[in-house]
Design a protein around this nucleic acid. Structure first.
Lengths: 149, 149
DNA sequence: ATAGTGAATTGAATAATATTCAATAATATA
DNA sequence: TATATTATTGAATATTATTCAATTCACTAT
């Protein structure tokens, strides 16, 4: 037995999906060529970044979800994007935002369990330039990525 | 001219996409029927919730993104999901999480601009049961929904 | 070990869908 | 009003998903 599902999940996280033009056409009661034209226009304008799958993360071994509020050390205020882009490279990181307020950065992270998260904090998140972090663990997700669970 | 794009964007937020089986098959060098079988299995197990589009939100008039940390009033501690599910109904709300720590709930919200957000806070987020909120406005998004921008 | 069971893989045939293209219509611009 | 640009659409084609049946694989109990 090949373990294909893991590879599929990985591909689905970033894309490898496509619009259902025929179904959209039926729903909107328009010709499929019109829908096709408008979708391609949205893609060319860059309004649509990609098409991807949304998961029940518990079922793909990523049930532990944490919001990480990050306070940067003052010498990093001038270039928060450098740290942010580094953190964004990690596949466990769902989102990276540079923010206003008491925290300069917010991560949303998905891992298997608390142990895995602890290792991520030690090995990835704790680094020079990061002054303080507050971890808010999600106990229950009611909606993600605009999809109600 | 019909304004179809708005309707398409709305449909794409929750689904109306589908996997690209042929392309995945080529990437993984497996027969497309094998890929098909494995994807359908993931769907039946409920591991895949839906297939949808990811946007450059600035280009679809949702450039203002805020993380809302919510403190519930003590009489709501027993049933935070009621408020959460109500909030999840609103299309501006990308995610709703029940959390540990100083805040019992975290929202991620996307609207057009600060004015629209102000109205959302007044009309939707401020309600009985919500004790205190802290809004962390995203100044720059480096990664969203696992997609690097 | 091995027979038996259910699950996974796969090729061939078919059904469904996206895409291309050219014609027309609508809108914007000068 | 004339002209250029953009949007809509039907018909033809290319691509892709899906179905089905056959085979292989993995696991369990004897």
């Amino acid at each position: 037995m090949k373990n294909i599902t893991e590879k599929i999940v990985k591909l689905f996280k970033e894309g490898n999906c496509t619009p259902q033009i025929a179904k959209i056409a039926k729903k909107l009661k328009e010709p499929s060529t019109t829908i096709h034209y408008n979708i391609k226009k949205l893609e060319k304008e860059g309004a649509i970044k990609t098409y991807k799958a949304i998961f029940d993360y518990k079922k793909i071994d990523e049930g532990f979800c944490v919001f990480v509020l990050i306070s940067l050390s003052p010498d990093e205020y001038g270039n928060p994007e450098k740290i942010g882009k580094d953190l964004a490279k990690h596949p466990e990181v769902e989102s990276v935002d540079i923010c206003t307020g008491n925290w300069e950065m917010i991560l949303k992270v998905r891992v298997k369990d608390q142990d895995t998260y602890y290792n991520l904090v030690k090995n990835v998140i704790s680094r020079r330039g990061i002054n303080k972090i507050v971890s808010l663990t999600s106990l229950k997700q009611l909606k993600t990525e605009f999809v109600t669970l």
